[in-house]
């Protein structure tokens, strides 16, 4: 890994406790994790394992009950709400499972939003470039209801990359879309990663997790396994496989896995 480029995320003994129905729930129970610049980390685990909480924590959407979390050298627990908003805006790009585009708003305007909140100029040009980057140069003025699931997710990716963040956080990015479209999304992620963008992705699908370079496994709020992906899948090859006429997509993925 590109250790020489430095540490991007540093989590130490992170504890997150929720009170649910009077019961204390340890969503994260003493997590330590380092992520270096340029990594592609897949976080896996069954539901309830704490991977979503982990995601929210890394994304500065939530703060830990105790423990230390540093992003790019900044201690997150020292920051106020506006500073957290600013980190989310400049350093992190979010890709959600449900796409989470703003309804009745064009792709271009959705992608412009982070720049708007970041008070940047030349928003139109940057947003257009981001949409071209994800292959939607001809869909700039379509609203989310006029786009397929895969296309919506690509708009979401364009929105995540438009402010050129160092980190992309993806929460089940292929949750609601077809296999081919999932591979297209993974291809974009792998290309972005090749360009030096750090990616942290939560998924429960092993096939998707294998597109990353490192796989972290979680159970009951703890990291139980953390190792490099041995047989990494390349989305580009997968797509070529999928586009071959005969076999159905399910079989191909099975073969690939």
């Amino acid at each position: 890994m590109d250790a020489k480029e430095g540490l991007l995320l540093r989590l130490r003994d992170i504890l997150k406790i929720y009170i649910m129905g009077g019961q204390e729930v340890r969503a994260l129970d003493g997590v330590d994790l380092d992520v270096n610049v340029g990594e592609f980390v897949s976080i896996m685990g069954p539901s309830g394992s704490g991977k979503s909480t982990m995601m929210n924590m890394i994304g500065c959407l939530d703060v830990p009950t105790s423990g230390s979390y540093q992003i790019d050298g900044a201690e997150v627990s020292d920051l106020d709400d506006d500073e957290l908003a600013s980190i989310r805006n400049r350093k992190i790009g979010f890709v959600f499972q449900g796409f989470n585009l703003i309804a009745r708003t064009s792709a271009l305007e959705n992608v412009e939003l982070p720049l708007l909140y970041g008070r940047q100029k030349d928003r139109r040009a940057a947003a257009t470039a981001a949409l071209v980057r994800v292959g939607l140069g001809d869909r700039l003025d379509h609203t989310s209801s006029e786009l397929s699931g895969g296309q919506q997710q690509r708009v979401a990716i364009a929105r995540a990359i438009v402010s050129k963040p160092r980190l992309i956080l993806a929460d089940e990015p292929t949750g609601n879309i077809s296999t081919l479209q999932s591979e297209e999304i993974m291809q974009i992620f792998q290309e972005l990663n090749d360009d030096g963008v750090t990616i942290v992705m939560v998924t429960h699908e092993l096939d998707i997790a294998k597109h990353g370079k490192r796989c972290v496994d979680m159970r009951d709020g703890k990291i139980v396994d953390d190792q490099p992906v041995a047989d990494r899948l390349l989305a580009k090859e997968m797509i070529e496989e999928l586009k071959k006429p005969r076999p159905t997509s399910k079989q191909v993925v099975a073969v690939g896995a």
Partner: peptide, 16 residues
């Protein structure tokens, strides 16, 4: 509500 969540996630401050 969801839209507000999205806006906050991508960097809108409370004031925005």
């Amino acid at each position: 509500t969801r839209e507000i969540g999205i806006r906050k996630a991508i960097g809108a401050r409370s004031r925005d």
